[in-house]
Design a protein around this nucleic acid. Structure first.
Length: 901
DNA sequence: GCGAGGCA
DNA sequence: TGCCTCGC
């Protein structure tokens, strides 16, 4: 209803809003402090400005609107008065860099911009206001600047959106008992310190107002000067008469600047929502994105279900004609190796999507197209490499489809991977998060359609009515996210990494997951039993010593026994001081004075091995394939590395004998052999390459033992003097450097004094000067750009690198060093995986890549291929990238994972 | 030094 | 949710 009233008023009096952009930039800059995006770009003024603009457009819904900026360079006022605005400091750097963004925001709102050399925004506003008034328009000058009061008439008012205050002639009369035009004379007398306009010294605004009230104008003041009794005031007025006249001239807004008044041009246009969304994403205005989008959620989304053959034919015809489309599957399980298809959704154009239900089987479900019919009909278009497929975590859909006998081709873009590349530090890259952050859109939650907790049902039990908007939205939003991500990746130089590494890697990971790996069921059973027996014995001993039974795995209960019952010395509290710490370090120390802690340590190791590996692995054997299908996650580790889960292969113990027992349970298929290939010292080699450190480079070129070499450098002894302990210490130093460890950390690791640790580090840097400057340069570069990057341009945002909090900053600095090294290793391993996979295919070999763990790849090799496979893998891995040092790969084979390592 | 997943 | 242990 309010819209109706607004429209009527608009029709009667077309109203033109003239926005004093320049003034707002400054006001926003000072009103919003300390805002920047993850690239380090200051965004405070842009944010304040944008918020003001949204508020204006939404609250006022102006029929006509224009934006005004000051042009660079001097104006006629500078010519008249050299000191004009001379006291203004130059615009701060972090404001200057925001100007282009403010301009882009204005353009995205489709608001015409006025800016002209030689004129200030004020003059352009005054001139356009005059023309508009003449043409029967009402004018609202959007500003907080009191200079504009001189222009105020019944049909031309000021509105200050920050104070939400309207100034019309009546308001001026009330505040000053003056007419608007008299304000020029007031300001002529009082001057304006902000603009360095002098006025008459000693006469402030209050006095000036009183004088003009009395005499009507400045000319009136001088005509009646003799009647002024205050002697000092009279003297000053006379002495500075010329200055007062000049000041009046300077504060007078020029109303004859050459501006075009073209109502068509000024008529408010619909904002370019797509451009705004993209800008908000880049500026990281998540909150604004949300408010803006929730108001502007006017987009009519057209979602429909495909229930019959004719509709399916029509959709397939559309898909065939498309260059690209987004697809999503609805299934019965999160696990792609278990999931059954319930339906498929597609989106080809923004805000439009279709859902094809095939497997909803709740009571009373309508008849649906059969899955076979649907897949047969879709198969050609899904397998057409010329049509680009876009998905969110498309590895999942691809696996499900493959398990249902349909192959995808032309898989071009994964929005989850894109989100990860843009900001790998984010916790979540799910579609809901992406929609919120980049599209300002709140997705329908899974819980809304399927229920949550115990009441949750599988998707086949969800009614089709509920499924349609949910499933369609996923495809629709995926397509929209793609359109936002493509320019964002491009802007950050991530397109190549996406196209050449992450997307090609996706099918390689998918292949490994689907192939799975064989485990020796009997061995695992035996292990589990043996662990159980040992745990039992340990528990009995522990309870005996404790004098009571308790859950040894509960650190809380253990803390109670150790520190309250047995009164052992408390070493440290847990992080949030909720209890006693019982970690390895504490228990190891306590073990010196009491037998119990040692038993607990042993218990812990065995319990972890039993529950997390032996038993869990048995549980994870797939019913149909009889193998274990690990998930490789491409979007979790912030450094760029892969992670694995269910089971997590990254933390299977390797140092202890029991840990190796678990590895022995991973076996090749009957008659085949495992081949393991791992990069030797890849991180230190990358450090050598990045730092160009001559000693480090030479050491690797000569294929020296790098830890021994570091020992000779740091401890200043001959190589033949290096014993195991010195080498161990040097190794800790080498890793400490990579991880950005402090002297304190190294001291703890080596159990030496802080001072000694610092001496080691000093010696290290004295010898490896290239490394020293590399670290310094990397931190400095990170401080400039607020990010750090790898060899292939993978980025990690470091918003905290310039934090004033020392701890926070130092953490970011360590990350700045560690990420390029670990991340480059990740880049190279990913590239090597792609190349090895491709080479194996080209040679039509049966050798299959099964696992990728850290710097190691594991293959299953048929008997006659071993020599070829070894050579191929080594060749591809060692020559994946030309570095300043050779890459070395250790290759070994065996009848289980432990043996092949 | 941190991050990863898994368990109480 | 926090703690723990493993890996790099």
């Amino acid at each position: 209803m309010s819209t109706q009233i607004e429209l009527n008023r608009e029709e009667e009096f077309p109203t033109l809003y003239l926005i004093d952009g320049s003034a707002y930039i400054y006001r926003a800059y000072h009103a919003v402090r300390g805002l920047s995006n993850s690239t380090g770009l200051a965004t405070n003024a842009t944010f304040g400005f944008t918020r003001m603009l949204i508020k204006l457009m939404q609250d006022r819904a102006p029929g006509y609107v224009a934006m005004f900026f000051d042009a660079k360079g001097p104006t006629f006022r500078h010519e008249r008065y050299a000191s004009y605005k001379a006291n203004r400091p130059p615009m701060p750097e972090d404001l200057v860099e925001q100007l282009p963004w403010i301009r882009k925001v204005t353009e995205a709102f489709n608001i015409p911009v006025f800016e002209q050399a030689g004129f200030e925004a004020d003059d352009l506003i005054g001139s356009l206001a005059r023309r508009a008034e003449k043409n029967g328009f009402r004018v609202v000058m959007v500003t907080g600047d009191k200079d504009f009061m001189q222009l105020v008439t019944d049909r031309c008012t000021i509105w200050d959106p920050m104070k939400d205050k309207r100034i019309d002639p009546a308001a001026i009369r009330e505040d000053f008992d003056l007419e608007a035009t008299q304000m020029i004379d007031v300001m002529g007398l009082s001057g304006d310190t902000a603009d360095n306009i002098p006025g008459v010294p000693g006469i402030g605004q209050k006095t000036a107002v009183r004088l003009i009230q009395t005499f009507g104008s400045m000319d009136g003041v001088y005509a009646g000067i003799e009647s002024i009794t205050a002697k000092k005031q009279k003297e000053k007025l006379l002495q500075f008469k010329d200055q007062a006249m000049l000041s009046r001239e300077l504060v007078t807004i020029d109303r004859n600047a050459p501006v075009d008044f073209d109502p068509d041009h000024l008529k408010r246009k619909k904002p370019d929502d797509e451009a705004l969304t993209r800008l908000f994403a880049e500026l990281e205005f998540r909150q604004l994105q949300k408010t803006y989008a929730s108001q502007g959620e006017s987009v009519a989304r057209r979602y429909a279900a495909i229930m019959d053959k004719a509709a399916l034919d029509e959709l397939v015809a559309r898909l065939e004609r498309a260059d690209r489309f987004a697809l999503d599957t609805e299934t019965t399980s999160q696990d792609p190796m278990q999931a059954r298809l319930v339906g498929l959704s597609f989106s080809l154009v923004p805000a439009q999507a279709w859902y094809i239900p095939t497997g909803h089987n709740y009571l009373g479900a309508p008849e649906q197209l059969s899955l076979d019919v649907v897949l047969d009909r879709l198969r050609p278009v899904l397998a057409d490499p010329a049509i680009e497929k876009i998905g969110q975590n498309i590895k999942y859909d691809w696996m499900v489809l493959r398990r249902h006998g349909v192959e995808l081709a032309g898989v071009d873009f994964d929005t989850m991977v894109a989100s990860y590349l843009i900001d790998p530090g984010k916790r979540a890259h799910g579609l809901d998060q992406i929609a919120l952050d980049y599209l300002g859109h709140k997705n329908i939650s899974f819980a809304e359609v399927a229920g949550k907790g115990k009441a949750a049902v599988t998707f086949d039990q969800v009614t089709i009515d509920k499924a349609i908007p949910y499933a369609c939205e996923d495809a629709d939003i995926t397509l929209a996210a793609h359109d936002v991500f493509v320019p964002l990746l491009e802007a950050r130089g991530l397109t190549d990494l996406m196209k050449r590494v992450e997307m090609p890697l996706l099918p390689v990971l998918l292949g490994m997951e689907m192939t799975g790996v064989c485990v020796d069921r009997d061995r695992l059973h035996d292990l589990s039993k043996s662990f159980a027996g040992q745990l039992n014995t340990l528990e009995r001993q522990i309870y005996d010593m404790a004098g009571e039974t308790f859950n040894v795995n509960s650190s809380q209960q253990l803390g109670h026994i150790l520190f309250e019952k047995l009164n052992l010395p408390v070493q440290k509290k847990t992080k949030k001081k909720t209890g006693y710490s019982t970690d390895v370090e504490v228990l190891t120390k306590l073990a010196r004075s009491h037998e119990l802690p040692a038993l607990v340590l042993r218990h812990r190791t065995l319990a972890k091995l039993k529950s997390t590996y032996a038993d869990a692995l048995l549980d994870m054997i797939h019913a149909e394939t009889g193998r274990i299908h690990t998930s490789f996650n491409q979007t979790v580790a912030a450094t760029g590395r892969l992670s694995s889960s269910d089971p997590n292969l990254q933390n299977i113990p390797i140092r202890t004998e029991e840990g190796r027992e678990i590895r022995k349970a991973f076996v090749p298929r009957e008659g085949w052999t495992f081949l393991s290939a791992d990069y030797s010292q890849i991180e230190l080699r990358i450090l050598a390459h990045c730092s160009e450190d001559s000693i480090l480079i030479q050491a690797f070129k000569d294929d020296e033992d790098i830890h021994t070499r570091t020992a000779t450098e740091v401890f200043q002894v001959f190589p033949q003097m290096i014993n195991d302990d010195l080498r161990r210490q040097a190794k800790a130093i080498n890793f400490g450097i990579i991880y950005g460890m402090s002297a304190y950390g190294l001291a703890r690791e080596l159990e030496i004094s802080n001072k000694m640790a610092q001496t080691y580090i000093d010696h290290y840097f004295a010898r490896y000067q290239g490394v020293k400057s590399f670290i310094e340069n990397t931190i400095e570069a990170a401080r400039d750009t607020r990010r750090t990057s790898t060899l292939l341009g993978r980025l990690r945002q470091l918003p905290d690198i310039a934090s004033t909090n020392r701890n926070v900053r130092q953490f970011a600095e360590r990350t700045a060093i560690n990420t390029p090294i670990q991340g480059t290793a990740a880049d190279l391993i990913k590239l090597a995986m792609i190349n090895v996979d491709r080479a194996l295919r080209q040679k039509r070999m049966q050798t299959t890549m099964l696992l990728s763990v850290h710097d190691e790849m594991i293959f299953e090799v048929p008997p006659d291929e071993m020599d070829d496979a070894k050579a191929l893998v080594r060749e591809e891995m060692e020559h994946v990238w030309e570095l300043a040092v050779p890459l070395k790969v250790n290759v070994a084979c065996g009848q289980n994972w432990a043996e092949a390592h």
